[in-house]
Amino acid sequence: MSNDIPVLEMRGISKSFGPVQALADVDFRVHAGEVVGLVGDNGAGKSTLIKAISGVQPADSGEILFEGRPVSISHPNDATRLGIATVYQDLALCDNLDVVANLFIGQEMVAGGVAGAFRALDEVGMEHRSHELLNQLAVTIPSVRSEVGMLSGGQRQIVAIARSLLGEPRVVLLDEPTAALGVRQTALVLELVNRLRDRGYGVVLISHNLVDVFEVVDRITVLRLGRNVADFKRSETTQQEVVAAITGALTGAGAGNSGGER
């Protein structure tokens, strides 16, 4: 938590899907150089909040501030431009494309040429950068030219994570990035999260594994039934307390607002 203005702040975010209120007046913030754990039971609204930030599913109402400035994120490109990178829970990869193509999807390197979208791809440049990116993650994949559909679940997850590091992100949103990973790979991703923090990125980590969460985060925000129920500093809380907040056994405690009723 290097300074007082959060790199990303959400105020009063609400989102409904028909009769289902997925998010109700949710506040959320992350500072540069901070890792925030976003936790809550299944259906608490974590992924919905991530999608509101990343622009793939804009919220119905609420305010988003980026480095203190109000911004509107209504399309994934808005988020990308701000430097918000996302790893989705369902990975969102194209199985028919190879690793290189997936890493650069929507942000392809082009080698000048004809107008508009008909520009030629810079395959050499992209393949080169892919090696750099994957080496940085200390991970080898059979070949950067293998189809993503043929990779194992963990390898796919690594590709999705590597993709989020492509630009120069300011904020990285990781929606259950370790769900498909083995013990060693999970450790690797947590180590990566630490490195991202050291580089000054704001990191949001969603996970159901509180042990993992406690290992890397600075702060924990708990959602329950689409509402904020608690906000803890890691150093000032315990797993039991967080579990209590998640399940609704806890009321009025924690650093955050207590809205766990209903």
Partner: peptide
């Protein structure tokens, strides 16, 4: 071309393409 790559991406996983 970038256009062609996007055609493959949409054909492979339209939602992933949209999110990208």
């Amino acid at each position: 071309t970038q256009f062609g790559r996007h055609v493959f991406a949409v054909g492979g996983n339209a939602e992933a393409a949209r999110r990208a």
